[in-house]
Structures are given as C-alpha cells and as structure tokens.
C-alpha cells in the first residue's frame, strides 16, 4: 500500500495513509501515515462505532496537512479494549 502512496506522490498527488502494521510502515515509508493500533481488519475503525470511525478519518484527513516531515508516522490515541493480537508482541 505504501508503494502506491509513494507513486502517487511522485506524480504530484498528495496522500495520507492509515496503518495498523507499524514495522512494515517504517520499512516502506509512505509519505504521511497515521498509525492505529487495532487488529487487522479494523484499520479505519471499530464495527458499528460511527464516532470512532469518524474520529480516525478526521484525524487522518484533517491532520495530513500538519505533517511536514516526509515519512512521518503519527500514532492515533485510540485503543482496542482487548488487545488479544498483541499477546506475543
């Protein structure tokens, strides 16, 4: 996904990426990324939680312009109630 973002930016189209895979994002380096520490399958929010989904989008779309460092990864403050997938992390 980061490779698509990079190609778009090379062509002059700005991008903002969401990611739940911090390590992969640090390798590929999309131009602007908001990290959401949720299990895969929930990158843009919790199911049927409109407030959570809207907050993530507003943070990412609204915050994109504030990022001045290419490759920046900004962690969003939302937490998953039961971080089951982090047990072995």
């Amino acid at each position: 996904m980061g490779l698509i973002a990079r190609t778009l930016e090379e062509k002059g189209i700005p991008t903002v990426s969401l990611s739940s895979a911090y390590d992969l994002t640090t390798l590929v380096k999309p131009p602007r990324t908001f990290f959401i520490n949720y299990p895969l399958g929930h990158t843009s929010g919790k199911p049927f939680d409109r407030a959570n989904q809207t907050a993530i989008l507003k943070d990412a779309l609204g915050g994109a312009r504030e990022i001045n460092t290419p490759g920046a990864i900004v962690a969003l403050p939302y937490a998953w109630d039961d971080p089951f997938w982090l047990a072995g992390a």
Binding site: I4, L8, K11, I13, S17, L40, G41, L61
Partner: peptide, 21 residues
C-alpha cells in the same frame, strides 16, 4: 500501480486516503 494511479489522476483527486486491511 501505474493503472491505479492513472485512474486516480483521471478523476482529479486532490488527496488520496490509503486504507490497508
């Protein structure tokens, strides 16, 4: 990627949101 990028360009997107799953 070039095919996807061409579609995005053709639609004149000002900002692209990428959502991996």
């Amino acid at each position: 990627i070039p095919a996807m990028t061409a579609r995005i360009e053709a639609m004149k997107a000002d900002l692209v949101l990428l959502v991996p799953a």
